[in-house]
């Protein structure tokens, strides 16, 4: 069936982390690769510090812009706790990429509930493929703390069959000229972190 060829990526995190731009970039790389692509997210209230998710689906032919539960190949969680919220979207054999960034929700700030402990351990007990990234540190290395989203794209790119020159082309077109250099560096650092890890 056609839909078997569709790759499902889910990005999750908190408003302000650059998820929408990251999913735009991924989608454009897929499009530039000659594939059909759809992506979906909800704007509006979510911007005010709430949860943000973006679904990206690409392949020969894509109908639905949202993946169904149990069908996601790769979850990229820009915030650690947000990983847990979307586990049921994952295929059991799927890959989970977790950014170490912690952003406390209001109930944790108020001391009503605790930020869950050992999230990586919990996720690893369900999935065999888990990659943990300190995108904040790598972004600082790239020269801009705001480039965490591009770091995570670099990490993600190591697990996708989309060509690096296309990634670089789309990144160049996606940022104002003065931020292009930093974001290219961030992409390379993110990708290199996985290539080293797999050696």
């Amino acid at each position: 069936m056609m839909k078997k060829n569709v790759k499902n990526i889910l990005m999750s995190g908190v408003g302000g982390q650059g998820i929408l731009r990251a999913s735009d970039i991924l989608s454009m790389v897929a499009m530039e690769s000659g594939l059909d692509v759809k992506k979906s997210e909800v704007h509006g209230m979510a911007q005010r510090g709430g949860c943000v998710t973006s679904h990206v689906r690409y392949g020969q032919k894509v109908y639905s812009p949202i993946a169904r539960k149990g069908d996601v190949d790769i979850l990229v969680s820009f915030e650690k706790l947000e990983t847990l919220r979307y586990m049921d979207y994952m295929k059991p054999e799927g890959l989970v990429i977790i950014n170490e960034r912690e952003i406390c929700p209001p109930s944790v700030n108020l001391g009503i509930s605790d930020y869950p402990h050992d999230i990586v351990g919990t996720v690893s007990s369900i999935f065999s493929a888990v990659k943990v990234v300190d995108a904040g540190r790598l972004a600082k290395e790239a020269g801009d703390v705001r480039a965490e989203n591009t770091i995570l794209l670099g990490v993600l790119s190591a697990y996708l069959r989309l060509e690096v020159p296309l990634w670089l082309k789309v990144i160049c077109e996606s940022f104002p000229p003065k931020f292009v250099e930093t974001n290219l560096e961030a992409f390379h650092l993110g990708r290199a972190s996985q290539e080293q890890a797999s050696q």
């Binding site: 169904r68 049921d88 059991p92 799927g94 929700p105 209001p106």
Partner: peptide, 18 residues
């Protein structure tokens, strides 16, 4: 139907907009 991975058995604090 795809069989989703199971949700972890821990409480996840909500994150409403603020």
């Amino acid at each position: 139907q795809p069989v989703p991975a199971s949700l972890p058995d821990i409480s996840i604090p909500p994150r409403p907009p603020n």
